[in-house]
């Protein structure tokens, strides 16, 4: 199988990685770069636990090859906070009680941040629609939606 040398930035840090063709962005982040905050929940683009931003837009990192990300800017959950200072969405979800087991949380945070970036004042319906690809089994979503609303107010 062919290998590819790629260059990209992860949370602002430049990285060079030698990846096999079939390596997904998810696998590279978790197994090559130690970014284990991004979770593997289904490997089929259905659960959203692996959501990261590629060039500012959220994608399922299990559904994109690492080699396709050559030259891209990636933001993972580890990149949402700035040297320990948390993003409003992170503060808001702690405050609202929207975290339980925490496994869906990184994907939810990235998808929510991406929503707020493109729509600083989303309606409840828009929030629900934007997070429909992020499955959560613990919370019933109530407090997650509240967190996004609260974060929009904070910005």
């Amino acid at each position: 199988m062919a290998y590819h040398k790629i260059t990209l930035t992860i949370n602002g840090e430049p990285e060079q990685v030698d990846v096999p063709s079939n390596m997904t962005l998810l696998k590279m982040l978790r197994e090559r770069l130690g970014k284990t905050g991004t979770k593997n929940g289904c490997a089929a683009g259905e659960c959203g636990a692996c959501t990261v931003m590629v060039n500012g837009e959220p994608v399922n990192s299990c559904m994109i090859l690492a080699v396709e990300c050559d030259g891209s800017e990636i933001v993972t959950v580890e990149g949402l906070s700035d040297h320990g200072s948390l993003a409003p969405i992170q503060e808001a979800i702690m405050e609202s009680g929207g975290v339980q087991c925490g496994f869906c949380t990184p994907g939810i945070l990235i998808a929510s941040q991406a929503l707020l970036n493109r729509n600083p004042n989303p309606s409840e319906a828009e929030i629900r629609e934007a997070l429909v690809g992020n499955l959560c089994r613990c919370t019933g979503y109530v407090r997650i939606i509240e967190a996004v609303q609260a974060a929009a107010q904070m910005v």
């Binding site: 970014k35 905050g37 993972t76 959950v77 580890e78 948390l86 979800i93 925490g102």
Partner: peptide, 11 residues
């Protein structure tokens, strides 16, 4: 607040 909040929101 949850004890593990901060760890879970930062990855």
């Amino acid at each position: 607040p949850r004890l593990d909040n901060r760890k879970k929101v930062t990855g």
